[in-house]
Design a protein around this nucleic acid. Structure first.
Lengths: 213, 213, 213, 213
DNA sequence: AATGAATGAGATTTCATTCAT
DNA sequence: AATGAATGAAATCTCATTCAT
């Protein structure tokens, strides 16, 4: 009588992750029921437990995997970039394009942190901290190089990440703007935001980067 | 913090709103149970229904009241401001300072929208649209006035609001920075982000990075 | 729509205890489901939680109440009894007759101890220890008085209680024997078991029996 | 204690029985899950079914094997004993020592009878009846021989078996008392309990049963 | 003989909500 | 305006068992 319908084999776990991602994105972790999830996958609710140990652990896994992937991709994106300006530009381009293709993972990793149990929460926050530090380091370097003018690195870091991440709330593939246009718009906003203004800072007036705006 | 004996009179509704705000902020709407809420207020779960009609309506009420208040305060803040730059500066200052004092309301109004039933959702999104339009108008005016250089008004609007709203995720009263410092930092980031760098340096027009926008 | 059928008011808790007692006696604690219990009482399973906090706590309560009652009734039964023999006789009579009328409570309190969580388990074992000590004291006194001949008080205590409690496994009201006959039979067995045979026959008291212990 | 890699060959069934015995003893039949059992044995739950047909049948097998073994060992122990007193003494010694070495089997066979399905239950009760009858016969013979004074054979049989079986609840190897001391204590209690008292029966005063102890 | 993935039923418990008192 | 007891649905998770591989 076993396994009359529904998926099976190594595919099932992948189907669970995928459906879980979608459902959590759409309804939130608390609001997603394992019944829904199982139905989506095409198995009985109890069968989920052949693949996950708890609902909490599924969430934690999804988030952790996402952040690990995000971090390693960021390394790749920044690998051969030199200079704070170029690296910030690369960071923005990477972040935006990653968020456009992995909207769900990103959104969940930001909005469902509070649903994580303390142990998982701390692990994820640590990883997220590593990501933020990459941006903070770029900003710090840029200030040292004299190419950035930032009052408070911490505030700027949070603000830039919030700005970029906000994308997930409204971006829909196939919208009015091309991917490149969106990236360009964000690059401009962010770089302008942290680069010295001729008006405000004479050192910025040498024209070196007047063209950016 | 819960009242040990039943509360009474016009205070109870206020206690429910306050406790509800905190609980939703901390656990999320779905994760907050009316039992918790009642316990916090110091009454029995059934007694809540002398004050609210459903859990959903409580959420909707909290969000709607918040947005209405936000909108009317924004009107006040912008009332006597002239010129796109000054108005944008006022918008940022208002938004940031409002978000610092009403962190919970703001957070909930952003993160729990998806828990609203369609009817309520649409009403709230309409109000939020009005708020966003105020910013979009400022940006449009600024571009027309020639003081702003913005590729895409829509993207910039979302980005700026996301940037400012991100504050709720990390701001804690009594932190390292004063309220004014935080406002100043955000003003600078936003205004720099949308103001043309080339304004003061014609040499910037070499087009090296013209492709970015 | 609430409370369309089923019992209500202060009676419900009593009904739950009564039905719980029966079901646990018949099927065991683990094998009794709260669905069964609720059905027996005439309410929905969830409604049980207006009266109990957990299944475990119901068990614990039933056992603890029983042992407390047992202890206080024992005090009454022994209150005006003097002399080890008379007190042992009273103990046996009390124990047997109590067990005949409260078969279920007694059985559960003996057989479901292992289903108690550590905290509850310890509380109950402490109370049970108090009960056993009453018997041990009687035996000790009797030995001191020279009316009992017992090798090992501890073993005898356990054995006597086991003997008397075994009654629960087979006794059915309305069986072949009257209550008094059963009490008498047990009194005789127990008293004979602990009283010296040599008392009346010096030839038996020659200490030949010293080696057995 | 679990095998880390899958066990194989004729050993697995033995491991299942042994682990099952321990788990049922500790948690009860209903509370023991086949998952636990499989884990203990070091195999997957599904693999159990290569060795047992159902959980129920495992229990039934364990109990039935125990009782059969108990019965055949009892035959051996009584084989060359003559006279009711000697045979009762042998019965007690056998029963006590058997229960000390097979605590778990004995306990389960007593406490988990109610978990047996009717068919199995009846088979086991029949076997247990045979065992009890051996004791009842000894008592009956003793009364006929005039060496025992028992009011009601049935009650005495149950009481003695309960008394002896109670041992399983408290006996721990390596405790305060030696095996022989425990046997001796029980022999004395039981034999005293059924042998006529000089006080109650003049025939008891002749010292005839000085030998009993 | 063992595995891994499935089933379908059922476990305890929580939930928003109702309503007579 | 508050209570306490109820509902019915649903939550997460566990269970014994099956069976293709």
């Amino acid at each position: 009588m076993a396994r009359t319908i529904g998926s099976h084999g190594p595919t099932t776990m992948e189907a669970i992750r995928k459906a879980g991602l979608r459902l959590i994105f759409e309804h939130g972790y608390e609001a997603m029921s394992l019944r829904q999830l199982a139905a989506e996958v095409g198995i009985q609710p109890g069968s989920l437990y052949n693949h996950i140990s708890t609902k909490q652990e599924l969430l934690s896994q999804l988030i952790q995997d996402h952040i690990n992937h995000l971090l390693s991709e960021l390394e790749l994106a920044l690998r051969d970039k030199r200079g704070a300006v170029e690296r910030l530009r690369a960071f923005v381009a990477f972040h935006v394009s990653y968020h456009m293709t992995r909207k769900r993972e990103v959104f969940i990793a930001n909005s469902e942190l509070r649903s994580l149990e303390p142990r998982n929460y701390e692990a994820v926050v640590a990883l997220r901290g590593a990501y933020e530090r990459r941006l903070a380091d770029i900003l710090t370097d840029g200030v040292a190089e004299g190419v950035f003018d930032v009052d408070d690195i911490q505030v700027a870091t949070f603000a830039i990440i919030a700005l970029l991440t906000g994308l997930c709330s409204w971006y829909r593939p196939g919208g009015r703007l091309t991917k490149d246009a969106i990236i360009a718009a964000h690059e401009k906003l962010v770089l302008s935001g942290v680069m010295p203004h001729s008006a405000a800072s004479p050192s910025g007036g040498d024209g070196k980067r007047g063209e950016q705006a």
